[in-house]
């Protein structure tokens, strides 16, 4: 028997719900595609590139990096500290991503005469949020350090 890799434990039977949803959802999708073709006729390939590119960049760049970092933390950090550090890294990544246009001044460059766009020092702002995140992580780590280690059932203390 060929072992199945990561297959859903119980492959789902497509019920009537799926087919109804496929007709409705497919219709909505077709409406959207028609809208792109009619309203963005000169840039259909650009829009397609960005939408399909978004999925590919997520699946083959962003996700592997995230999984890789998670794996590295699993290897390098003891079980006890792993969860808080993984949580801290995830929060940091999202914070930097959301602050990225401000950090790089991407909007500011286009409107140099409009100081109400991105009015803050985003290096300080992002640094502050990241600092708060790691303060929470530190508290979580301390709480774990203070908690007695669970006694493994298979190795009872002598």
């Amino acid at each position: 028997m060929t072992p199945s890799t990561h297959a859903d434990p119980a492959p789902e039977r497509a019920g009537i719900t799926f087919w109804i949803a496929l007709v409705i959802g497919g219709g909505i999708m077709a409406f959207g595609i028609r809208g792109v073709l009619d309203n963005l006729s000169s840039s259909v390939t650009d829009v397609a590139k960005w939408v399909i590119g978004a999925a590919l960049i997520h699946d083959f760049v962003i996700a592997p990096i995230a999984v890789g970092i998670g794996w590295a933390v699993g290897r390098g950090v003891s079980m006890r500290w792993r969860a808080p550090i993984q949580a801290g890294l995830m929060a940091t990544a999202i914070t930097v991503a959301i602050g990225w246009p401000g950090l790089r001044g991407y909007g500011r460059h286009l409107v140099p005469d409009n100081p109400s766009v991105q009015p803050l020092n985003y290096a300080t702002a992002v640094g502050t949020v990241v600092g708060i995140i790691w303060a929470v992580v530190a508290i979580w780590l301390i709480a774990r350090a203070l908690r007695p280690r669970p006694v493994p059932a298979t190795h009872p203390r002598k």
Binding site: I28, M29, F31, G32, I33, V36
Partner: peptide, 10 residues
């Protein structure tokens, strides 16, 4: 706007 329709369909 139009990609939102495609996404919601999906």
């Amino acid at each position: 706007y139009w990609v939102a329709w495609i996404t919601i369909g999906g």
